[in-house]
Design a protein around this nucleic acid. Structure first.
Length: 897
RNA sequence: GCCCGAGUGGUGGAAUGGUAGACGCAGAGGACUCAAAAUCCUCCGCCGCGAGGCGUGUCGGUUCGAGUCCGACCUCGGGCACCA
């Protein structure tokens, strides 16, 4: 008997697929197309288990679709621009390009042994000039279409590294790399006009039925549509040259609780005051300080500066409100100015308490939860404009029925709760939430106070990066013509190779010649743009490029029309927002610029977000020695690689010392915690099929899967069992007959059905469980040779998307024709999925008490008779009379007493 | 703070409103072996000798029947957030 040797058969079948060109995607109308794409990797140099899981899932789909008669496109490429290459260059003195291409070569070599059904002829890296040259061409078209523009923007500037930092790269207000205090700087940057499409990108989410609801929701929140009122407060007499302050609010129903108006330090009015008054300038400078990160803003105090200016309330010209400059107001959302309603907004309440501003409730709960205990209920103004008592000192109001806010918590009514308005809107009692807001907007519009507007949280996408290793922005700055796009015949604008990373900043800026060029317009000497594009641009259209990777335009329309959209996209949920949103934007932009057909407005028809591969962490505690800088007595944690530990009598111990280790369950694989397994080691030890089988088997694909040595062993043992089974059946005399042919064939058809359903519904773990069961049935079967041979061939087919090499080998041994990869997927015979007789459980009042086997088509009335005559039922009824009998044909019987 | 999602044996997890715990791991017992490894077989939710009872985070509801649907709560996880 031969032994299962993964190394031999895997190399053999990979060579066979290559030789046959099995996975080369060919455009033709004879079959339906199917485009499977996994999010392409960054070439870090090593593949990890997350890659293995991601690509295996895509491979299962791709191979299954190939077997079910589709033209499959399943490409692979490299998201190859980005900072790690530059950082590596700075650390080791190498070149980002060399580093990147070497890593690509290494990773490709690691990926090939997995036996993925990829069309490698379409491979590209985003740092190939052929790719980014087309990206530059696309950029020029987008510029012409008005989808790109330049503006001054505030950025995080690292003064040591002399570069812009993304928000995530600012830690505690300091640059993640240099540790320098980050400054907010205004730079002229390029932007994509994604905000113009905010409404469209939001509305179209509804049509993405095959996307996870969670991802759609995250995108929806990110785009952030809000409905509100935009209106102006008129300024009282002043000499600033301003006569009004424009404000946007989503809570116009609280307008009568206003107690101040706040403007951003970057608001035009604030800037005007800043020019005149050094005290204002000092305040504004201070307020602008600090990063734009979440933590920085969280920590910052709410600071306000009383400008001395006042505005009139739009509903009561006698009612004046002070104008503050406040550090928490953002210039780039709404109008850069707000009104504060402290009774119903916690931040406004804190601010008002700090600066001694009045707090006037607008509405109160219909019932009290303690927040408003002690306040009289039910008072409403007779008219919104009858507001004499709203202005001034509430405590001495003549009516004696006004309200003080003594609580330190603002009352924010929950959605859909009935509230009574205290001030305003004609004594209305309204639902809170959208209804109250709509009512308030309608009321304000009717009275000539502003108008309802829809705003989005989504802002334009700033794409300029002061980096070398990215796609150069293909424009030229000319003293006479201004900013001019490059001529397309000059593309690609290639990155120069001879750059110097020994000093900080963008090497393109310092390059002796690269930036000097001539104006495409007037031929006068001019300067190239030295900023490069955000790497998210590279990954926003690569899916389209795969349809014609060697085209001399960004896409080839006929190919794009044939292959787009991606039928199934697979990747990590960490890209739920940015990458997927940017790709959706680009698909639209490429349609506008004529690079994608109208049908490809949404690039990804179906999206699947897979979970991570996790592993236990093994740790021991040490004590520091006398030389440790922490001094004696400090404990420290030491981590150990999985291969350093073993299981001895139920205890996990260090192989070297025998000391027991502590186990931290299931954490994301991380080199620093040493809870990693290298796919290369797994493939060397067990083979690719085992690794593929295991990453699919243990957990549902959308959830995290924990890599365990015992699980991998089990997978390997199972594959070896299947191999041995094939060997045994292969040696059977073809003429031998046996017992239970029908049972085996029924199990086979059940298995075909279940595995097919499992693969189509991304239930890979369930499909594998069914394959275990079928294998077990076949192992125990005493059926004749013909049935067993058919069963093992079918088993191989059903396993082939997951363990393609083993499946090919079995197929070949069992006399299958051609490659199993090209074999037609088996179809379950419906007649073989049901039996002539069924066993029905019998419940008494919903509790299972007995069972009965009856012919499948027996009428319910007959079944009832048999049930009531059943000994076990009579015993369980114990003389009680059944009130009702429910027979669900083919499923269950319930006796109600 | 706002918005989502999830809670099932020792463990990963199965289960169109219809026999809860498939399949795997771990564990126990057995066969083979001089012995071990490998392999194979059996058992494996909890209580109970047993008949039986109880069981899908908690409490209620809908239903002939609820892990599944509805409501409230608890716990964990995720996303967003000076967004006016």
């Amino acid at each position: 008997m031969s032994r299962y040797s993964a190394a031999d058969i895997e190399a053999k079948w990979q060579a066979a697929w290559d030789a046959a060109g099995t996975f080369k995607a060919v455009r033709s109308d004879d079959k339906p197309k199917y485009y499977v794409l996994e999010m392409f990797p960054y070439p870090s140099g090593r593949i990890h288990m997350g890659h293995v899981r991601n690509y295996t899932m895509g491979d299962v789909i791709a191979r299954y679709k190939l077997s079910t008669g589709h033209n499959v496109l399943h490409p692979m490429g490299w998201d190859a621009f980005g900072m790690p290459a530059e950082n590596a260059a700075m650390a080791s003195g190498g070149h980002p390009k060399d580093w990147t291409y070497q890593n690509i070569a290494d990773m490709r070599a690691q990926m090939k042994p997995l036996g993925l059904s990829i069309d490698w002829s379409r491979e590209f890296a985003t740092c190939d000039p052929e790719y980014y040259g087309q990206q530059q061409s696309l950029f020029i078209d987008m510029l012409a279409a008005g989808l790109v523009y330049r503006k001054k923007a505030t950025v995080n500037w690292d003064p040591v590294d002399m570069t812009v930092l993304a928000n995530e790269q600012v830690i505690d207000g300091k640059g993640w790399r240099s540790g320098a205090d980050v400054e907010r700087r205004e730079l002229v940057q390029w932007f994509f006009k994604i905000s113009d499409m905010a409404g469209e990108l939001l509305d179209a989410l509804d049509g993405l039925d095959n996307w996870p609801a969670k991802v759609r929701l995250m995108q929806s929140n990110w785009i952030g549509r809000s409905r509100g009122l935009q209106f102006a407060f008129g300024l009282t007499e002043n000499d600033t040259g301003h006569d009004r302050v424009e404000v946007y609010t989503t809570r116009p129903d609280t307008l009568l609780g206003a107690s101040f108006v706040g403007i951003s330090p970057d608001h035009p009015l604030a800037k005007e005051l800043e020019r005149r008054d050094p005290a204002v300038a000092a305040f504004c400078t201070d307020a602008r300080k600090g990063g734009t990160t979440e933590e920085a803003m969280e920590k910052a105090d709410k600071l306000g500066y009383d400008t001395g200016l006042t505005v009139r309330h739009p509903f009561d010209t006698a009612w004046e409100l002070p104008v503050y400059i406040a550090n928490f107001i953002l210039m780039d959302y709404g109008t850069g100015a707000i009104f504060g309603c402290p009774a119903h907004d916690q931040r406004d309440l804190d601010f008002s308490r700090k600066y001694g501003l009045p707090v006037k409730p607008v509405f109160i709960q219909a019932y009290s939860k303690g927040v408003l205990t002690g306040y009289p209920l039910g008072f409403a103004m007779s008219s919104a404009f009858n507001l004499a008592s709203s202005n001034g000192d509430l405590s001495t109001s003549s009516t004696g029925e006004l309200y003080f806010w003594q609580d330190e918590h603002a009352y924010v009514p929950p959605k859909s709760e009935s509230v009574k308005y205290v001030h305003g809107f004609a004594g209305a009692e309204l639902q809170t939430g959208a209804e109250g807001v709509d009512t308030a907007i309608a009321f304000c519009e009717a009275n000539g106070v502003g108008h309802g507007v829809t705003k989005f949280r989504l802002r334009d996408w700033g794409l300029s990066r002061q980096r070398y290793w990215g796609c150069p922005i293909p424009v030229v700055h000319c003293d006479t013509c201004g900013t001019v796009p490059e001529k397309k015949e000059n593309l690609p604008i290639e990155l120069p190779y001879d750059v110097d990373f020994s000093i900080p900043g963008n090497p393109l800026d310092r390059h002796p010649t690269w930036r000097h060029t001539t104006c495409p317009n007037c031929n006068a000497p001019a300067r190239r743009e030295t900023d490069t594009m955000d790497t998210f641009v590279d990954s926003s259209w690569y899916y389209a490029r795969f349809t014609a990777p060697h085209a001399t335009t960004p896409t080839a329309m006929a190919d794009a029309a044939y292959w787009m959209n991606v039928d199934q996209y697979i990747g990590g949920v960490e890209h739920a927002i940015l990458h997927l949103l940017y790709s959706r934007f680009f698909a639209r932009a490429m349609q506008i610029t004529g690079h994608l057909p109208k049908s490809a407005i949404e690039p990804f028809d179906a999206l699947f977000t897979q979970g991570m591969v996790t592993h236990e962490i093994y740790q021991t505690y040490g004590r520091t020695g006398p030389n440790d800088r922490h001094g004696e007595g400090h404990g420290f944690t030491q981590y150990h690689f999985p291969e350093e530990v073993e299981n001895r009598n139920g205890k996990v111990v260090l192989k070297a010392t025998g000391n027991e280790v502590e186990i931290i369950p299931s954490a994301k694989m991380s080199k620093s915690k040493k809870n990693v397994v290298d796919p290369m080691n797994i493939i060397a030890a067990y083979g690719a099929d085992t690794a593929r089988w295991f990453v699919l088997s243990d957990s549902p694909p959308e959830r995290d899967v924990e890599w365990t040595a015992s699980g991998a062993d089990a997978a390997a043992k199972h594959l070896a069992r299947v191999w041995a089974l094939c060997d045994r059946i292969g040696n059977m005399d073809p003429n031998v007959t046996g017992e239970g042919d029908d049972d085996l064939l029924r199990a086979m058809h059940r298995s075909i059905h279940d595995v097919t359903v499992g693969i189509e519904g991304f239930g890979f773990n369930a499909a594998i469980a069914k394959l275990y069961a079928f294998t077990s049935a076949l192992t125990k079967s005493k059926a004749g040779a013909a049935a067993q041979k058919l069963a093992i061939r079918t088993l191989a087919q059903l396993m082939s998307p997951m363990t393609p090499h083993l499946a090919e080998d079995i197929w070949a041994h069992q006399g299958g024709t051609g490659l199993i990869a090209n074999a037609v997927w088996p179809v379950a015979d419906p007649a073989m999925l049901t039996h002539d007789s069924v066993t029905l459980p019998i419940q008494i009042n919903g509790k299972r008490r007995a069972e009965i086997t009856v012919p499948r088509d027996m009428p319910a009335s007959e079944v009832e008779k048999l049930v009531l005559a059943d000994d076990a039922v009579i015993r369980a009824l114990d003389g009680a009379t059944p009130k009702k009998l429910i027979v669900v044909p083919g499923r269950i019987v319930n006796v109600v007493v």
